[in-house]
Design a protein around this nucleic acid. Structure first.
Lengths: 156, 156
DNA sequence: TGTAACGTGTTGAGAGTTCAACTATTTCGT
DNA sequence: ACGAAATAGTTGAACTCTCAACACGTTACA
């Protein structure tokens, strides 16, 4: 019955450390962004991807992929940010199902001012506490995890 | 004006890798637990900590610390899990402000059955994709991050 | 060309999280 | 011993996220 591959002590410790770091760190990121700029990190991420797109404009589905959002999440988020005046939606001429999301100037300004504090936080609590070697390792570890997940499980 | 320490290309890549891995991985963990056991990961974590406590019982504030929850989150969570019959609350005799949370047998069973699939997921998508060296590195990186945050920012 | 399968995006309900405000109790300083 | 400040925990509102269901346009294939 019990062919579960449980974690040994080493692994248990690693897992708990990872969990703790993850929670503490992202809680901070989230809170800093929320307090200083009124943006959840997911929204920030969406604005970043839009700002990098040609004409600051992307199809919803592509934006969802780039920002690692589910379609549903993105839809809600863009609706919300459209109300706030940071994003504008428009129809796609070549595919009538499609929608474009476009970053407005107000959205760009918001993003621009949010970015400073955010980067500062990332630097302080991530890069500043890691050696160059550890930074390299983190990149490789992250890539391994991402690759391992491949995409056997994309959300709806 | 601009003394912001922006990220260079290397750092940018590392940060985005980390972000992507983080999102994909924890989305999976969350979904697996939710689908298979009807538990958000935060609730699972709370049950784990309770199960490890003497008499499977802890003061709310201590439980909050151990499970890395805000007091508010824990309060809501325990309320919900008490309805479900997994946890029981009782008054603390020595401090009339205090409350104990105690894991019920039903709660223990739920935890026990949830743990298998959860561990399997952690093993598959974390440990299986990392070399022993990377596992060590991950532990050190995580500890460094946690320590770096120290506790200049505990939630309300 | 007709229709079934697929893709794109939205919606509403349900659930968890946060934040600020609040009650009740305990501790500390004088 | 008294009042101020700190601690324990709860609550309700606002917000985001997920999930399932949906509407509509497109593609493929017979």
């Amino acid at each position: 019955m019990d062919d579960t591959r449980w974690l040994d002590d080493q692994e248990q410790q690693t897992w708990r450390s990872f969990l703790a770091a993850h929670r503490l760190f992202f809680e901070r990121i989230e809170r800093q962004l929320q307090q200083d700029s009124g943006l959840p990190h997911a929204y920030f991420e969406i604005l970043v991807r839009l700002s990098e797109a040609p004409d600051r404009r992307l199809r919803m589905s592509e934006l969802a992929t780039n920002s690692m959002s589910s379609r549903s999440r993105l839809s809600h988020a863009v609706a919300r940010m459209e109300e706030a005046g940071w994003v504008r939606r428009s129809a796609c001429p070549t595919d009538k199902r499609g929608q474009f999301a476009e970053l407005t100037d107000a959205g760009f300004d918001r993003l621009d001012s949010a970015a400073r504090g955010h980067v500062e936080e990332v630097r302080t609590y991530l890069f500043d506490v890691l050696t160059p070697e550890q930074q390299r390792a983190l990149r490789e570890i992250s890539d391994a995890i991402t690759e391992g997940i491949g995409d056997g499980g994309a959300p709806a």
